[in-house]
Design a protein around this nucleic acid. Structure first.
Lengths: 223, 223
DNA sequence: TAATTAGTTGACCATTCGGTTAGTCTTGCT
DNA sequence: AGCAAGACTAACCGAATGGTCAACTAATTA
């Protein structure tokens, strides 16, 4: 079966059986590793556990990924690249209220629906970002700088009240991510067992209302 | 030397030499353990490392704390009790602007000045709070409910705009704690190596401005 | 002071883990 | 078919770790 996929240079190539098997096993292992790393953490996840979850011999895991750290890095990279698609690119021409509201909504939904990934990322940062440091410097930072510029342009144009753009972004990131990382605490305090759609809605509304009002904006209507 | 200290019931007692030694060694070990757990995490902190840091034989560590988990729990408990003193108790009679502003200021300072403790706490929650679950249910929850009531009273009295009090509190917690947990990311994005007093000030101002304005309040003057 | 209790410690152990190796099997190519 | 390259795997290994134990010392008490 001649399948088609994107190689690292982005050109489409036909893969022979070996390459196909390789790809299949890699994603198989990445899936197992991601699930385990994100629930147990790096140290409590043993290579043999990953192997068992993926139903392959342990040595096979080390065959595809030279060592445990390597596999962990690969998992993180895949998560980061997966997040890239959702990262709304703001531009100075956008309406701040609409843009920020949509962004907050998106981040709340991701936090509530994929909390494990968020937690894995947070753990990595808390540890000092040993594997993602380069990614933060080379990928996140330029993107961050760009957003800062946009927000500053909004301020200069009088579209929103003057606030330090960095701290505004941190507020959005932290208050949305909170529902993933602190899920355990939230559930205890709220006496809940899971997030429902109505929770996601009310979280989005609450955060949006405070932040947008704080910026002198109105919360846009739902379309 | 007849020293005096508070026992668990809060009554002052004279301790003989053995009890004194016991207390001294316990805090010695707790200090070493806290420093290591908060920088290396639970699994990468070995009992022998703690022993080395405290300059006592490894077996002595296990003598005072039955096992590693026990010691870890003790460290967490001590941190939580230490935070208790700083937790401003709000009351419905307080001026919301003043009270919230002071609370935000306090939390930002703690996050920037003692980030390791905050990170240890966050890690515990991310892991599902295996050791602090009871504390959250029995200590934090009642306190949380109380604050919720106060905020709701403010809303009912028309002192602040209507917002879900829970989500408001989460916003304050998350946006202040962020500077501890995500310190690594913040430093990379801001091209900094440490928080300075001016940073603490500007963080406090930014967060306060957005949240208080979002609640229809003015940021109070510094006294 | 004698006896009992508590503190201290080096040596030791079972287990687990990440990683290696040596050898077998499968696939693709000529 | 035959061969080289890559896929696969059982068995093994050294290192580290949490925890135990028996022996020894110091302090408290009767």
């Amino acid at each position: 079966m001649g399948e088609v996929c994107m190689d690292t240079e982005g050109t489409s190539v036909k893969m022979n059986k070996k390459e196909l098997v390789r790809k299949k096993n890699q994603t198989l292992l990445l899936d197992a590793a991601e699930a385990l790393f994100s629930t147990l953490g790096y140290d409590r996840t043993s290579v043999s556990l990953i192997a068992a979850k993926a139903k392959v011999p342990k040595a096979n895991v080390l065959y595809y990924f030279k060592n445990k750290e390597n596999l962990y890095s690969a998992v993180l990279e895949r998560i980061m690249s997966g997040w890239g698609v959702g990262l709304v690119d703001l531009s100075a021409e956008d309406e701040p209220a609409q843009a920020l509201y949509q962004y907050i909504r998106f981040k709340v939904r991701v936090s509530c629906e994929f909390p494990a990934q968020s937690r894995l990322f947070t753990t990595e940062i808390i540890r000092g970002a040993p594997h993602l440091g380069a990614h933060l410097r080379e990928q996140t930072r330029p993107w961050f700088r760009n957003i800062i510029t946009v927000i500053q342009a909004w301020i200069d144009a009088g579209k929103i009240r003057p606030v330090d753009p960095s701290h505004l972004l941190y507020m959005i990131w932290s208050s949305t991510q909170y529902y993933a990382d602190y899920q355990t605490e939230v559930f205890i305090l709220e006496n809940k067992l899971e997030y429902e759609d109505s929770d996601i809605e009310s979280i989005t509304q609450s955060i949006s209302k405070v932040i947008l009002t704080g910026l002198g904006l109105e919360v846009p209507e739902l379309n």
